[in-house]
């Protein structure tokens, strides 16, 4: 119980176990570390844990394309995550980690599940963007499943509409740090 209240203060009592897990694995913007610092830390962790690089497969499960713009920005010459050992791969079969966006539209449900199954273990799933957390503005309707974790298990949640590239890297760092456990 002490642990709970450390994370959540007074809200701890009212939160279910499931909400608590989701809360503790949701990234909140860092005010102390710069992008470069986080990137260096990420690189060290990746080298230590995975040998050389972290292979990411991006899956759009019905997003508005906003999150894709920011994820694609990670690969431009300014953010350039490749220098931290992060590589976007073309197939889930080559991936260590899935970055999933969108409210998980019903029409993408089967494809997302198959992509997850095709990814070799151990694997990490990160839900990116407000829709991916709980459906966001698109909510829980006939056409959505209201969150990526309704379809596949999610390890880390990155909020934002869309999350900035800095927050994406911070989320990757959180995910890689959990890989040890």
């Amino acid at each position: 119980m002490k642990e709970k209240s450390q994370i959540l203060g007074n809200h701890a009592e009212t939160m279910s176990e499931e909400q608590l897990v989701k809360f503790s694995s949701t990234v909140s913007p860092s005010t102390t570390k710069s992008y470069e610092e986080m990137g260096k830390e990420l690189k060290d962790r990746i080298v230590k844990l995975l040998g050389r690089s972290l292979a990411i497969r991006e899956v759009d499960a019905g997003s508005c394309n906003g999150c894709e713009i920011e994820i694609a920005a990670l690969t431009n010459s300014i953010y350039d995550v490749e220098r931290f050992g992060i590589h976007f791969v073309s197939s889930p079969r080559h991936a260590d980690l899935l970055l999933v966006t969108g409210p998980a539209s019903r029409n993408m449900e089967a494809a997302l599940r198959r992509t997850y199954d095709a990814t070799p273990g151990p694997k990490i799933v990160i839900a990116v963007g407000a829709c991916a957390l709980d459906g966001g503005i698109f909510g829980d309707t006939y056409a959505t499943t209201a969150g990526i974790d309704k379809v596949v298990p999610v390890d880390v949640y990155i909020p934002g509409c869309p999350p900035r590239p800095e927050l994406l890297v911070q989320g990757l760092l959180l995910a890689v740090n959990r890989l040890k456990r």
């Binding site: 019905g62 906003g66 969108g102 539209s105 698109f138 909510g139 959505t144 509409c161």
Partner: peptide, 25 residues
């Protein structure tokens, strides 16, 4: 239509001012 999210139906249950955010997305 893999990304079909029911935007048109959703707008019918939203306030007109709220639909501005939906239109952006």
């Amino acid at each position: 239509f893999y990304a079909h999210k029911g935007v048109e139906k959703l707008a019918e249950s939203m306030a007109p001012e709220g639909v501005v955010s939906l239109a952006e997305r």
